[in-house]
Design a protein around this nucleic acid. Structure first.
Lengths: 138, 138
DNA sequence: ATGGGTGCAAAAGTTTTGCATTCCC
DNA sequence: GGGAATGCAAAACTTTTGCACCCAT
């Protein structure tokens, strides 16, 4: 994800508007530990702007995903998480505490790319390792 | 997923019971095209046993997943799909029609396995390619 | 001024849960 | 007989949508 000011500029270029809510969501994403859910972002921004609506958070996250500034992750939790690090990489998920780690990996998954793709045009790949962190191995 | 009779035996071994509903769900999974959702399974079994409850389907699928006879897939659709082919392999998803193809791939993801795992014990990995099938490339 | 954005509430969709009844072992 | 399973309905959750009002451009 690019710096907040560049995101605002990118919004304008698309005819979208820069509102205080969106700016705040951008900042929350930038400062958020890692891989927050929509609800996580919502709670962060509510501390600063208590009237912010969850629908606004969802709309803004959708825009960022469409713009390619944010990656939507589905890690089998029944809800989405969002990743500001958009360069291709892998994830490692603890099945105990649900912590998510970024892992270096070939962005294009060139090594994995199947030879027989049944005519499919492949856009991207997602690699997730599931396991248990040191604390959850007990 | 093993044959229906073996699944029934496996249930009994765990102190679980073999009911007509569960047998039917096993058969539906065995005969189902590929990667059905809970709702898909529900509709298949309703044709034979109209009083079957969706909760029963969910409970039974959960047991199979826990027993390692079924793999639960999260492909970012807001719902789970289930895969009877439990040997490690990859998936290719069409973002247009949501068709899901099985793709051969190293079950252990040995080539991908990160060297630095921060002390994590890794249980399994999931590789999903997203793209467009021939029909949806228009 | 105008078209997009916001907040609120309701709706939609999937999955879980509580509970009385039924049934496998 | 006893414990698990079932069916039903309600609840829990995440995400989407409709709409009246507001605001960035």
């Amino acid at each position: 994800m690019r710096p907040v000011d560049e995101l605002c500029e990118a919004l304008r270029e698309q005819g979208l508007k820069v509102t205080p809510q969106r700016r705040l969501i951008f900042e929350a994403l930038r400062d958020s530990p890692n891989h927050p859910s929509a609800e996580d972002v919502y709670h962060l921004v509510r501390d600063v702007m208590p009237d912010m609506s969850l629908a606004t958070v969802y709309h803004t996250l959708d825009h960022l995903v469409t713009m390619g500034e944010l990656v939507q992750l589905d890690l089998g939790e029944g809800k989405s998480r969002y990743d500001t690090y958009t360069n291709g990489h892998f994830h490692l998920v603890c099945q105990g505490c649900r912590e998510v780690l970024d892992i270096a990996g070939d962005p294009d998954c060139a090594d994995l790319m199947p030879t027989e793709t049944s005519g499919y045009q492949i856009d991207r790949c997602e690699v997730v390792f599931y396991g248990h962190c040191p604390d959850c191995q007990a």
